[in-house]
């Protein structure tokens, strides 16, 4: 039953987008093929899929671990951005000397950046009881503004013809590619490794048990002596660190420079991925591939059928909407009351 609703949501989204294409006066079959099939038909497409799934997977596993403890990190986008910024600072500062440790330092700086950005909501939550849903989301916008300021201001490449971008990373600060001739880098392996690590953490360690207990039964966690505040810290630092790693991998494995727009909303899409994958690392692996396909197919539609890029966001929205609706309607029955205080009442 628990896996029924993501499948249902995916099917309903396909139906929804088909209707949308028809309403736009496009051939739905061609559009669907462009959206879902074309990207899978070439090695190039498949590696691009892996490339796009990497940040989604990293962010979504962190988000999911948090949600299992009832800690809602909505701001992976901001932690992703800070990871990219802090990692880039190291890469730009120490790169170029040919040292082997530069890429490692860059990656760790990215993780630290994401963690630091997530530490702020953790502090606000545990000291002042300010809910992380609000604080993490708001800090995302701060992070994007900060990135804009840096690439337009102090970090702007003096030889960049005034484009808002930083200097290029030196080769020693770049992530190695997995496949020559494609853009797939070893960040994809980090993301893949996060799947078993996340599963083991949640299922087989005491820390994971605490996380699940705090989320499933707060009173039982209090009774067992599992600290709510410690769990908030662990979850936010962990998901912040993963998002930060995703951020720096995106830069050090991609263009090798910061620009004002480094993410097409990976951190937000990862929330959908986490729920579509049922907060389970293995499920999230598949959900991240589906979401990556949407990004790729959306670009394809834009290029070959001149459709707006908003199609991607629309389908993402449909997915989440149908998923939440399916969850509610599978678990609850809607009953309409006839009297004047009519409303919806749920029967367990």
């Amino acid at each position: 039953m628990v896996w029924l609703s993501p499948v249902l949501a995916a099917l309903l989204s396909v139906i929804g987008v088909t209707l949308l294409f028809a309403a736009l006066g496009r051939d739905p079959v061609e559009a669907l093929a462009t959206l879902f099939v074309t990207p899978l038909a070439s090695i190039d497409g498949l590696t691009e899929l892996g490339l796009k799934a990497t940040p989604l997977l990293l962010c979504a596993i962190g988000i999911a671990i948090g949600v299992r403890a009832d800690v809602w990190n909505i701001g992976a986008e901001g932690q992703f951005t800070l990871g990219a910024i802090v990692g880039s600072a190291v890469a730009l500062g120490w790169g170029g000397g040919g040292h082997w440790w530069v890429i490692l330092a860059t990656l760790f700086a990215g993780i630290a950046g994401g963690m630091a950005w997530a530490a702020v909501p953790a502090l606000l939550r545990t000291r002042f009881n300010a809910h992380e849903i609000l604080t993490t989301l708001m800090l995302s916008y701060v992070a994007i503004q900060l990135l804009g300021y840096l690439v337009h201001g102090p970090w702007k490449d003096p030889e960049g013809y005034s484009f808002p971008q930083t200097r290029q990373f030196a080769p020693d600060a770049m992530l190695p590619l997995l496949l020559e001739g494609t853009r797939l880098h070893i960040g994809a392996l980090f993301a893949l490794a996060a799947v078993p690590l996340g599963s083991v953490l949640l299922g087989r360690t005491l820390v994971g048990f605490r996380i699940r207990t705090v989320g499933a039964a707060p009173a039982a966690a209090r009774y067992a002596g599992f600290s709510r505040n410690a769990t908030v810290w662990v979850c936010l630092l962990l998901s912040g660190g993963l998002a930060g790693l995703a951020g720096i991998c995106e830069i050090a494995g991609g263009n090798g420079q910061l620009t004002p727009l480094i993410s097409p909303g990976y951190g937000f899409a990862a929330i959908i991925v986490a729920f579509l994958g049922r907060l389970n690392p293995v499920g999230i692996l598949f959900a991240s591939l589906l979401m990556a396909l949407l990004y790729l197919g959306g670009e394809g539609l834009q290029v070959s059928m001149q459709m707006p890029i908003a199609v991607t966001g629309t389908v993402q929205g449909m997915l989440l909407f149908f998923l939440l609706a399916a969850d509610v309607l599978i678990n609850y029955r809607v009953r309409l009351l006839p009297a004047r205080r009519a409303g919806v009442v749920t029967d367990g």
Partner: peptide
């Protein structure tokens, strides 16, 4: 349920709850 034990956890994990 909800305090002495977690309803959705198996008994093995409920044994772990305080005996860890």
């Amino acid at each position: 349920l909800g305090r002495g034990a977690v309803a959705e956890f198996p008994l093995s994990e409920n044994a772990l709850l305080t005996a860890y």
